[in-house]
Structure formats: C-alpha cells, structure tokens
C-alpha cells in the first residue's frame, strides 16, 4: 500500500515538471517551488503545497490553476487540491541540482 502511495506521489512530481516557470525557464519542481505532495489514499485526496519565487509574483493564479489542471488530468480519480503557501519563503538555495544545471551552473 505504502509503495503504491509513494508511486502516485512520485508520478505527481513528474507531472508537475511539465509546468515551466515562464521567466526562469525551468520547471517548478526543479525550481523548488513544490514543497509537499501528500496522498490520503482512503479519501482519494491528493494535496499539493507550492510556493512562488516572490509573494508579489503575478503568476500565482496561473501556476496554481495549471498545477490543478495537470494533476486532475493525470489522476482523474483523485480529488486534487493545490495550496499556495508562503512559509518557508522560497530562496534560490531550494533549486535542485538538475535545476542549477539547467540554469548554466557547473
């Protein structure tokens, strides 16, 4: 059961990688914007906590809607909820190694 739960969470992360931050040009997972993906299997609920690079970012509505639509299509049987959170505040240190590589850091 736990393995299947983890598999869905991993698949959710992979699906969210399709959403690219339009200014920076790398996906929101490698950018470190996705804080948490949790699955309550008994309730069939997928809960996502994500943030933005800055609280004033005009992309807030676009990215949350995109994440909801992407996950709803990917997991049509699950009830998906995307929550935008500000704590802890995002910093560039949250960018993954892959993200750093895509940004041109060696």
């Amino acid at each position: 059961m736990k393995t299947q739960e983890q598999e869905i969470v991993n698949e959710a992360y992979e699906a969210l990688k399709y959403i690219i931050d339009p200014e920076i040009g790398i996906n929101i997972v490698d950018l470190g914007l996705v804080y948490k993906v949790t699955l309550k299997e008994d309730e069939e609920k997928l809960h996502i906590e994500l943030t933005l690079t800055t609280p004033g970012c005009p992309m807030s509505g676009t990215i949350t809607t995109a994440a909801e639509q992407m996950l709803h299509k990917r997991f049509p049987n699950l009830d998906t909820k995307v929550e935008l959170v500000w704590l802890p505040p995002w910093t560039p240190d949250m960018i993954s190694e892959e993200g750093m590589r895509q940004l041109g850091n060696t």
């Binding site: 690219i20 200014e23 809607t65 299509k73």
Partner: peptide, 22 residues
C-alpha cells in the same frame, strides 16, 4: 513579453504546450 504572455496563455498553462515569453 512576460505581461503579454501571462494575459495570452494563463488559461492554457497546464493543459497545452505553450511558448515561453522569450
């Protein structure tokens, strides 16, 4: 480009492959 992109593609992100502002 970011402003125009946002107004043009905000309803499509996550459902369609969209160009980037650049």
């Amino acid at each position: 480009p970011f402003i125009v992109w946002m107004h043009s593609y905000e309803d499509y992100v996550g459902r369609f492959k969209t160009p980037m502002p650049k």
